[in-house]
Simulated scan of single mutants.
Amino acid sequence: MVKRILVAFRFSKSGLEALRMAAYLASVHGAWLHIFHALDYRLAHPQTPDERILQMTREIEERFTRECRPLLQGVSRFGFNCWEADPAVEVVKLAEETRADLVVVGCHQVGDRPGITRLGMVGLTIAQTAPCPVLLVPCPREAKETLSP
């Protein structure tokens, strides 16, 4: 039974597709959906002012609410977090801490070749080290134009 789903989220086509899939699965299973977005881990450098990190965190949270919250229709229980971290390491750590039953990761489109997707280093690391099953979601295909006869 799937009770807790963690989605490794980023603002991209593949990230939005992964979020859609995770939201669908959470609604079907009545699962808790934990959405995590990693800010650039280099922000954790001691010379980065705390105000800058707080500002970026607020901007990301506002963007998520504005652009992504509508995708969560039908999901009754969810949380969104972001902080400066190495995304792969942090997602695996969160999967362990939250006892996730499933991690959802989006694949990337290969250049300008629609329909061809690949797993990046973050996704590959998550898939290899996560303490639970990992669902890889392909990048959405662009709608093909139809030619009139």
Results as ranks from 00 to 15, higher is better:
residue 67 E to V: 14
residue 2 V to F: 13
residue 38 A to Y: 02
residue 141 R to V: 09
residue 90 E to N: 01
residue 14 S to E: 00
residue 144 K to T: 05
residue 58 R to I: 04
residue 66 R to F: 08
residue 61 E to G: 03
residue 69 R to E: 15
residue 44 A to M: 08
residue 43 L to C: 07
residue 78 F to T: 09
residue 51 E to I: 05
residue 70 P to E: 10
residue 87 P to D: 13
residue 76 S to C: 12
residue 64 F to C: 02
residue 39 L to V: 04
residue 81 N to K: 09
residue 18 A to T: 01
residue 81 N to E: 14
residue 120 G to S: 11
residue 70 P to V: 11
residue 140 P to L: 09
residue 24 Y to I: 10
residue 27 S to D: 10
residue 98 T to W: 15
residue 34 H to C: 04
residue 19 L to Q: 02
residue 97 E to F: 05
residue 127 A to I: 01
residue 50 D to K: 04
residue 67 E to M: 10
residue 73 Q to L: 06
residue 85 A to S: 07
residue 55 Q to H: 15
residue 79 G to K: 03
residue 113 R to S: 14
residue 87 P to C: 12
residue 75 V to D: 13
residue 120 G to L: 12
residue 77 R to G: 04
residue 65 T to N: 10
residue 104 V to K: 08
residue 145 E to I: 05
residue 93 K to R: 14
residue 101 D to M: 10
residue 98 T to K: 15
residue 119 L to D: 06
residue 130 A to L: 10
residue 23 A to Q: 09
residue 87 P to F: 03
residue 139 C to I: 03
residue 16 L to R: 15
residue 7 V to D: 03
residue 130 A to E: 07
residue 52 R to V: 13
residue 9 F to S: 00
residue 106 G to K: 01
residue 5 I to A: 01
residue 36 F to H: 09
residue 18 A to W: 06
residue 128 Q to K: 14
residue 111 G to Y: 01
residue 48 T to D: 11
residue 111 G to D: 10
residue 56 M to L: 13
residue 130 A to W: 00
residue 49 P to M: 13
residue 73 Q to P: 07
residue 83 W to C: 03
residue 90 E to G: 09
residue 10 R to C: 06
residue 13 K to D: 08
residue 84 E to D: 06
residue 69 R to L: 14
residue 33 L to Q: 11
residue 16 L to K: 11
residue 27 S to Y: 05
residue 42 R to G: 04
residue 49 P to K: 05
residue 148 S to M: 12
residue 135 L to E: 09
residue 107 C to M: 15
residue 136 L to V: 01
residue 148 S to N: 13
residue 102 L to T: 00
residue 25 L to E: 07
residue 137 V to H: 00
residue 21 M to W: 13
residue 115 G to F: 00
residue 41 Y to L: 02
residue 21 M to C: 13
residue 147 L to R: 12
residue 64 F to D: 06
residue 69 R to A: 14
residue 99 R to I: 04
residue 80 F to N: 11
residue 129 T to F: 10
residue 5 I to K: 01
residue 61 E to C: 11
residue 18 A to C: 04
residue 106 G to E: 00
residue 72 L to Y: 11
residue 84 E to V: 02
residue 25 L to A: 05
residue 130 A to C: 03
residue 12 S to V: 04
residue 105 V to G: 00
residue 96 E to I: 03
residue 122 V to M: 00
residue 149 P to G: 08
residue 113 R to K: 15
residue 139 C to W: 04
residue 21 M to Q: 08
residue 92 V to I: 05
residue 13 K to R: 15
residue 98 T to S: 11
residue 104 V to T: 08
residue 71 L to H: 13
residue 39 L to E: 08
residue 122 V to A: 00
residue 93 K to C: 07
residue 99 R to D: 14
residue 33 L to Y: 09
